[in-house]
Amino acid sequence: MIEINDVSYSYLGIRALSHISIKIEAGEAVAIMGPNGSGKSTLLKLINGLIFPDTGCYRFQGQEITENQLQDPIFAKKFHQKIGFVFQNSDTQLFCADVYDEIAFGPRQMGLSESEIGKRVNDLLELMQLDAFHHRSPYHLSGGEKRKVAIACVLSMNPEVLVLDEPINELDPRTQRWLVDFLIRLNKSGKTLITSTHNLELVPEISTRSILFDENHGILADMQTQKMLLNTDLLIKANLVDEYYHIHDGEDHVHFHDHIF
């Protein structure tokens, strides 16, 4: 479904992606891991057609995605409908006057009728437990609620692929749990999930496969999530953890030590 072939990209003279090749099939749940500034966000932007490779090529469902291709409004609409992007910063993603309009924005651009849109929005609000927020302004919501609305806006277009940039960051533990369960359900219902995260605790739950970036903006490893978490040397090499990192009993239980001693 997604094919990235030897892609490099730099921004203002700074390398952000270096010879990346990835293949993702429909229905997979993939985590993108790596230290800060290793190119995770850039990769997600590329997948969503917001930036374009300097060299190499990106294909989505067999179709090469280029700047020219996306100039065609019909193609662009179809492409953006199939792939949804939840941004790292919810504030930048929420720009409408109230929650209803926010979720309805995508479907409106797709040209659906108001009654169809109303049905979708209400279903989603119910699903996300946001019933009471219809006419609230997105600015005035809490961080967790904002994240929920941001996800709802993307789901309202019924995309096949869902791309999330650090979705678990800055959420309280309860909302984290809710989001993880929700993502698992989405994946089971057939949606492809691509998630970037540093959260080693939750990564095995939201992905079966992990792609690890190193600080040179290249791919260091592409393997099963469980295996990767056990390979401490690899994680240290990527500069994602330090030597105090360990896993208890091979379970997906990780904790971090105080570095004072």
Binding site: N48, A76, K77, H80, T92, Q109
Partner: peptide
Amino acid sequence: KEMYSAMECRGFN
């Protein structure tokens, strides 16, 4: 700029 990308991602042109 990011907001504009978010709008684009949701089909705005």
